[in-house]
């Protein structure tokens, strides 16, 4: 009964997902659920395939095995136009921002609205200014991406990601390389957007403190598997060595400091 409830309130359901790039296994039989209206964090060390997971959910990559169901639709079975229709309901914030460099801030945010709707220009202007106001950059509308700082670019990208009022936003490493003020702004923005607009948020990150502060549920990944999951409080109290090493940033533990190699003295 409980599992049934979980199924029903999941916006994204991943079951037995396996994915490999050439010989390298990225995911090995991974199952997870992203709940409606919650902030779910996928955490793990660099190179653990977190960004790949977002690309799989967005249908940019196709899994070797297993299923990914988003809003009741099996990603693998969708044709191109169905996939594009589903993507209109997803927003994605890329690590680099991925703003179109030949358009200014205003036109970048207006881009998806102009592409997918036939709204009059006056209404587009109002919508774009509202989105830019939400991220605090209404005054920066005339700037070009090369004139923005990293934090500002990410906020513009966030405004663009929510331009079409999606049901879900995926954040790829939103806090990486941000100064403390930008980081605080982003953390607050993600939380506010999620709660006020009723979004479902997936945050992929390795910034433990910031992510744990706003996440409702966390999955910790390493070596293609989920090594821990739970609410931030549950994970802090977890007895698992893996989880403890990751949550507390210990340099050595089950995840070794040294890359796999021969005996040190033999090697010298």
């Amino acid at each position: 009964m409980e599992e049934n409830n979980t199924q029903n309130s999941s916006l994204v359901t991943i079951r037995n997902l396996s994915f490999a790039r050439e010989q390298r296994v990225i995911f090995d039989n991974v199952s997870l659920d992203i709940q409606h209206g919650k902030i779910t964090a996928i955490m793990g060390p660099s190179g653990s395939g977190k960004t790949t997971l977002l690309k799989l959910i967005g249908g940019q990559l196709s899994p070797s095995q297993g299923s990914i169901v988003v809003d009741g639709q099996h990603i693998k079975q969708l044709n191109r136009s169905e996939l594009y229709a589903l993507r209109k309901k997803m927003g994605m914030l890329f690590q680099s921002g991925a703003l179109l460099t030949d358009l200014n801030v205003f036109d970048n945010v207006a881009y998806p609205i102009r592409e997918h709707t036939a709204l009059p220009e006056a209404l587009i202007r109002t919508l774009v200014l509202m989105k830019l106001h939400a991220v605090g950059l209404r005054g920066a509308r005339h700037l070009y991406p090369n004139e923005l700082s990293g934090g500002m670019a990410r906020r513009v990208a966030l405004a663009r990601a929510i331009a079409l009022d999606p049901m879900m936003v995926m954040y790829d490493e939103p806090f990486t390389g941000q100064d403390p003020i930008s980081m605080g702004v982003l953390v607050k923005l993600i939380k506010t957007l999620n709660d006020s607009v009723g979004l479902t948020s997936i945050i992929v990150s390795h910034d433990v403190e910031e992510t744990a502060a706003i996440a409702d549920y966390i999955y910790i990944m390493s070596s293609g598997k989920i090594i821990g999951q739970g609410t931030p409080q549950e994970l802090q109290q977890s007895k698992s060595e893996w989880v403890q090493q990751f949550m507390n940033g210990k340099p050595d533990g089950p995840v070794k400091f040294h890359y796999s190699s021969d005996n040190y003295f033999d090697d010298l």
Binding site: Q60, R87, G91, M92, F94, A98, L100, E115
Partner: peptide, 8 residues
């Protein structure tokens, strides 16, 4: 990639 994710 960004355009693809915007369904463009």
């Amino acid at each position: 990639s960004g355009m693809e994710m915007m369904a463009v």
